[in-house]
Design a protein around this nucleic acid. Structure first.
Length: 370
DNA sequence: AACAAGGGTTTAG
DNA sequence: TCATCTAAACCCTTGTT
């Protein structure tokens, strides 16, 4: 008999400035330099954006998502600054080893991205937060000793609190927020700190005079429903109150997409080579996972950076590059027929998966990442 | 009323 | 030319059952 009733103990792990830290692993000489990991678009020498950077670069003002040219300007006085192209495969290989380590600490785990995971430690800790903290330290030490990487760990009664706890002690931190401390922890924070609240939602909330998470937690639910709808309204209020029932469990991916930036903007189907390559990648991904898709979509990002989508539900599921490409081409053709749109980036998306082999077991489906 | 399909928006890392 | 890439969740509209 356990004494913790319905309450859980959830641990969140977040690798610090992951891509930049991975680069520092294989380049001893850049340990103490500003390191900026870039997504080069190939349009011109330095076109593209910053994916992530280490804290040395952050201290100069470099941030994820800013143009590479801007980051170079910021660091122009710093001879030591290093700009590297993103190398996803390399980071994936390191990520896989770390996720394997994490899985040894709990059977209830969930990988949320290449550098983040949750563990449900309820069975292991049995309500003992000091014990959960010990497990957290063990995890940090093991990742440091085996992979030479630092991470931040947060522990709380649910995923939301565990994640926000981890965020609050980055980098290389560990902290616990007990159920009694949830409201004191959240209430004074600016609403923008709450997971799920970005710039747009922050703006709307500020107009309602909701500045802090505590304000949101106390706000009239119907007023929030009127502003944000039947799902998002109550969801925001619950999150602000620190309530999150979402279980720690492996998710299945419901879509794959690939997108590229074109060398030149176009208003015709002049990107067959690029389109072919995208469809091949996607088909490959479906095939290795034993999946077919019943829906194919295209993404077109215009010269003014507005995103347009077109999609089609098929009569029968498909998986070959040829079939995906034919469908995508048809969608692009009718897209261009609708009117003049200068396209900068193009993408292909597949969804509505069905298993290729009926009797194959579900592990193919649950093998969710990469 | 409930559901499917299609398109757009917002968020996150 | 400053402006990437992948995935999820939600919102709204339209049309069908």
């Amino acid at each position: 008999m356990t004494f913790h009733g319905n309450s859980r103990t959830v641990l969140a792990v977040d690798l610090d400035y992951f891509f930049a830290q991975c680069e520092q692993l294989r380049r001893a000489d850049i340990k103490d330099k500003p390191v900026v990991v870039c997504v080069y678009s190939g349009r011109s020498k330095d076109s593209g954006v910053v994916s992530t950077c280490n804290y040395i670069a952050r201290n100069f003002g470099v941030r994820s998502g800013i143009p590479i040219t801007q980051a170079k300007k910021i660091l122009s006085g710093n001879q030591a600054a290093v700009f590297l192209p993103i190398d996803r495969e390399y980071y994936e290989s390191i990520s896989e080893r770390i996720m394997a380590i994490l899985r040894t600490h709990s059977t209830l785990w969930e990988q949320v991205s290449i550098d983040e995971a949750y563990l449900d430690l309820t069975p292991e800790a049995n309500g003992d937060l000091d014990l959960a903290k010990e497990i957290g330290y063990k995890i940090k030490i093991e990742i440091l000793e085996k992979e030479n990487l630092t991470c931040s760990v947060g522990i709380g009664p649910n995923k939301l609190i565990a994640k926000m706890a981890a965020d609050s002690v980055k980098p290389n931190g560990l902290t616990i927020v007990s159920s009694e401390m949830v409201r004191p922890f959240l209430d004074p924070m600016p609403v923008a700190k709450l997971v799920g609240i970005g710039p747009r939602t922050e703006q709307k909330l500020n107009e309602l005079n909701i500045k802090r998470i505590g304000d949101l937690a106390r706000h009239d639910e119907n007023a929030l429903i009127a502003e944000f709808g039947n799902n998002l309204g109550p969801h925001l209020k619950h999150f602000a109150m620190g309530i999150d029932e979402d279980p720690v469990q492996q998710r299945t991916t419901g879509q794959f997409s690939r997108i590229v930036t074109l060398k030149r903007n176009t208003s015709s189907l002049a990107f067959e080579v690029e389109l072919n390559s995208l469809c091949k990648d996607i088909s490959q991904k479906l095939e290795t996972r034993g999946l077919r898709c019943k829906s194919v979509g295209i993404i077109a990002i215009s010269s003014d950076l507005r995103t347009k989508n077109r999609s089609k539900t098929l009569d029968a599921p498909i998986f070959t590059a040829e079939e995906i490409e034919e469908t995508a081409k048809g969608l692009f053709r009718s897209f261009f027929e609708e009117g003049e749109t200068l396209v900068r980036r193009i993408g292909v998306k597949v969804s509505e998966f069905t298993t290729f082999e009926r009797f194959k077991n579900d592990s193919v489906l649950t093998d969710f990442l990469a």
